[in-house]
Write a protein that binds this DNA or RNA. Structure first.
Length: 604
RNA sequence: GCACCCGUAGCUCAGCUGGAUAGAGCGCUGCCCUCCGAAGGCAGAGGCCAGGGGUUCGAAUCCCUUCGGGUGCGCCA
């Protein structure tokens, strides 16, 4: 298979067609079907040739409100295959669409855009739908139940999680929530790297703490883990083994201590993740792959495909390691799948390289029947992407797409200056430190305020600031304001439970500023799908910021224009306006739910 | 040397997988509370989307190339 073929499979998400007759409210999808129906009608009327491909037709909100409520590129997309000018097609479409009660205006603009203006009732329906669907507003069937495995964190079980892991944990969990929200069957998985040399180091380090617990002075030699967090492990070892492991050779205790210590580390890591609100469905062990023949089986499968061979790699150009010497190795022909060089799976001593169990592990995921795999790596593992994709492409026969998201660094700031971490100086910031200082909700939101492959500043002072500099606060404040209005309205005797609001006459919602806010609410389901298709949960955070901004704006317009205040003299008008306000609250809560952040009811 | 990521306002960053006159926050300038929470809002100034080619109705977005920054490059995971 060529690299291009792999790219073509880059995401299952891109191939899923739009579900038909979907029950959920998605205005853009609705209007798009309307446009496509119009195209079909024109085709049967002979205005357009039959059988045109409508896949490239999009319906989106124009950037400039002067261009109406919805814009479609249909005419421009169809012009060439139809052999007609874009404007001619646009005009024919405009005429047909204008007869729909939802459409109050259809005009051709620019090179052939068709700008639609929609009736107020359309926006009122959006508000109603948000109220009816509540926390499920924006949910979609995009994924059609596809089974997706998201592997993330996978921190080495050699110590507590540090701040570098937090972003990956939050990103992975938010992505999992996003995919679940869009109709995917999601599994959260953690791959425990408990098979390599680093867990031997852990065992030796823990053993020194065990000696310490027995009253001996520990020898934390160079290369061992010096952290205090191993002291309890030493104590626990003493509790279990007494002094029976003292003065014994490593071969006597290494395996047992390793098992014991990694077990305790994993328990600690689970607790750390729980602090962030992250729960894994599956923990997979690297070590469990050894001695079971599964690595051999995975490699043999590749061998059966002619993708394993004995060969000698060229030294890297421009930077030859000093001890380089040509050596015959067992290689995986990853270049057949777009990788730059073939990759060794066996070391010269006959042992597996780290790549081999990873192949076996991904083979395991493939055979477990997932429709798509997602790996979340630190950005420093970028060089690993191609070979991993190659392995999965080979082992799944191209059936299972693997998307790998790289998470960039988090730069910590404190007191207006960069916060340098150092293990030696004891300024090593753990996940626990971050969550204890900032709180899980704030931490999660902030970690999603940047695209995953851009570095992110985490400023301990700013994230707790209650001002609009702080996006978390800004969004939460909007949600709190919504509740504030609801409280006031209830005091005024206005029925404002969701059912009453959803059933209310919404014709009082007519001001352009109000309808524009409803328009923002209408974008949410579409935004969620876009975010899910690209595996980019940060888009939800940005959307929420924009929504909050529009809401704050409308709120303040009430200062100048009393007719825009939400609570009015008559309760019918009030209900309509409060329905809009509550719909904003619903969407903020739904969006925060995707991010795993709890909306606040009040901030005093 | 090669591969991947990045380069957008003074600063920090979005930008709908190709749409119209490129957006937001900070900072700067000037405004708005007898009024649902001013912990907010409005307005103004600020741009060769790193440079150059190409693809097409149309490019910040896709392709090629140059420059600049980051990451990685056989027996560490």
């Amino acid at each position: 298979m060529s690299a291009a073929a792999i790219d073509a499979r880059a995401g299952l998400w891109h191939r899923l067609s739009y579900p038909t007759g979907q029950p959920m409210m998605n205005l853009f999808a609705d209007i798009r079907s309307l446009v496509i129906e119009a195209v079909a009608a024109l085709a049967s009327a002979g205005t357009l040739p039959p059988g045109l491909d409508t896949a490239a037709i999009t319906v989106e909100p124009p950037r400039d409100p002067a261009h109406g409520d919805m814009a479609t590129n249909a005419a421009m997309v169809l012009a060439k295959p139809a052999g007609l000018s874009p404007r001619a097609i646009a005009e024919a479409l405009a005429e047909r669409l204008a007869s729909d009660p939802r459409v109050t205006g259809a005009e051709v603009a620019g090179p052939g855009f068709l700008n639609l203006r929609l009736a107020p009732v359309v926006w009122q329906r959006v508000v109603r739908a948000a109220l009816r669907e509540g926390a499920g507003y924006g949910r979609s069937t995009l994924g059609q139940g596809a089974r997706v495995n998201v592997e993330f964190v996978s921190a080495n079980p050699t110590g507590p999680m540090h701040v570098g892991h937090v972003r990956g944990a939050v990103f992975g969990d938010a992505l999992a929530r996003l995919l679940a929200f869009t109709g995917h069957d999601v599994t959260r998985e953690y791959y425990i790297n408990d098979g390599g040399a680093q867990v031997d180091v852990l065992a030796r380090s823990a053993y020194e703490r065990y000696r310490e617990a027995n009253g001996l002075s520990p020898e934390i030699r160079e290369g061992l883990y010096p952290g205090d967090y191993l002291i309890p492990v030493g104590a626990a070892l003493k509790a279990k083994y007494g002094d029976s492991l003292l003065d014994k050779g490593e071969q006597y205790w290494l395996a047992e201590v390793r098992e014991f210590a990694t077990g305790m580390m994993m328990a600690m890591i689970r607790e750390d993740l729980a602090l962030l609100g992250v729960t894994m469905d599956i923990y997979s062990s690297e070590k469990a792959l050894y001695g079971t023949g599964r690595i051999e089986a995975a490699i043999d499968t590749l061998r059966g495909m002619g993708l394993i061979y004995e060969g000698v790699l060229e030294p890297p150009k421009g930077k030859t390691p000093e001890d380089w010497e040509p050596r015959e190795q067992t290689l995986f022909r990853s270049t057949a799948f777009g990788d730059d060089v073939d990759r060794p799976v066996q070391k010269s001593d006959g042992g597996w390289t780290y790549f081999a169990p990873d192949i076996a592990y991904h083979y395991d995921k493939v055979t477990r029947g997932y429709d798509a795999l997602i790996d979340i790596f630190g950005a420093d593992h970028g060089g690993y992407v191609k070979r991993m994709k190659a392995a999965v492409a080979a082992l799944s026969g191209g059936r299972v797409p693997l998307d790998i998201k790289l998470i960039q660094l988090v730069k910590l700031w404190k007191n207006g200056e960069p916060f340098k971490m150092s293990k030696r100086a004891g300024t090593f910031v753990t996940l626990r430190d971050v969550v204890e200082q900032a709180g899980a909700d704030v931490t999660r939101f902030v970690m999603l305020t940047r695209k995953n492959d851009a570095t992110l500043d985490f400023d301990f002072d700013k994230v707790l600031e209650q001002s609009k500099d702080n996006p978390v606060f800004y969004v939460q404040y909007a949600h709190a304001r919504v509740n504030s209005v609801l409280r006031r309205a209830a005091e005024a005797g206005i029925a404002c439970d969701d059912a009453s609001l959803a059933g209310a006459d919404l014709s009082g919602l007519s001001h352009p500023a109000e309808l524009a806010l409803a328009g923002k609410i209408a974008e949410f389901p579409r935004l969620v799908e876009i975010a899910a298709r690209s595996n980019e949960p940060h888009r939800v955070a940005f959307y929420l910021y924009e929504l909050a901004s529009e809401f704050h704006g409308l709120w303040n317009r009430g200062n100048d224009d009393a007719s825009l205040r939400f609570i009015q003299g008559d309760s019918a008008t009030s209900q309509a306006k409060i329905a809009l306000v509550r719909a904003v609250g619903v969407v903020i809560a739904a969006g925060l739910g995707i991010l795993g952040v709890t909306p606040v009811e009040e901030m005093r």
